[in-house]
Design a binder for these strands. Structure first.
Lengths: 146, 146
DNA sequence: CCTAAACAAGATGTCAATATCCACTTTAAT
DNA sequence: ATTAAAGTGGATATTGACATCTTGTTTAGG
């Protein structure tokens, strides 16, 4: 349902949010998130182009969030790497049929809308602040759950 | 978000539900749903294996629903061709971390759960019965909306 | 200036989803 | 029996997501 790339982007952003406003190197992020580093680099470049993260080259450089975790929503991250595609016109694409969705596609789009809403109303800070009773599940060295 | 195959399967099933319990040939279905026929055939074979549709070979044969539209849910169709994959363990896959999800993946899974619930609680009959004020958007010749 | 750390970017490889093609089997009707 | 409609199943493109490789650019610090 959610692509690998979205999953990877979210992991990276959660990691960065956890140590915000400090920067992390791509090596740090790859190690913590278990994302293949060469691919992680591409994902991070996409996040940088979208203005989600900023990068600093050279010795002591790294990647950091542009916004604070409290200002950044899951939806922004998802849309940065792979825009959540709502159904806006009937996929059958019959021009004569106008823009209103048939009942089937209206239902499917409603499901998408729910996901979109849930993601829009959740900030990274909320994700990090959530009380967790279980053992750590995100591999953040030294993090609250790691 | 939803694959092409799921979209195609749903179109085909909606078409069949609209003319249930009459059968339709793959040519009929392909023409109405605008699904490439050779691929539609594969999708229908999957639906047949999953027990969603039944097929009849030979002259006068075709495809029809096994259940009535009132008994068949969108979720059954979706799961038949591409099971909706809930997140059951943290994708980081760290064995030592048990089975409870971290806050990030719990949120993602909640979104999936909402989609699953919406699909489970919607029958094909409900989709077809829905009042529609717009021009027809599913290309069902002679159908209520076509 | 020189070096090593660290990100950038384009080229390439891999694989599964999507889509098509073709030879075969089943079946109703004549 | 013969024929033509109609589904079956395996082999074969095609495409884009996922992943990797290699070379280049930026930058802090000595």
């Amino acid at each position: 349902m959610f692509s690998q790339t979205v999953e990877y982007a979210l992991r990276a952003v959660v990691f960065l949010a956890d140590r915000a406003p400090t920067t992390g190197t791509t090596d740090d992020i790859a190690a913590a998130t278990l994302v293949p580093k060469p691919y992680l680099v591409k994902v991070l470049q996409g996040l940088a182009r979208a203005g989600i993260v900023q990068t600093q080259r050279g010795v002591g450089g790294g990647v950091s969030l542009v916004k604070t975790p409290a200002e950044l929503t899951i939806l922004e991250v998802v849309n940065a790497v792979e825009p959540l595609q709502r159904i806006r016109t009937c996929p059958l694409g019959l021009a004569a049929h106008g823009v209103k969705l048939c009942p089937l596609h209206r239902r499917m789009d409603e499901a998408l809308a729910h996901v979109e809403d849930a993601f829009r109303s959740t900030t990274l800070a909320e994700v990090l602040a959530e009380p967790t009773t279980s053992t750590p599940l995100c591999n953040i060295p030294g993090g609250r759950r790691g």
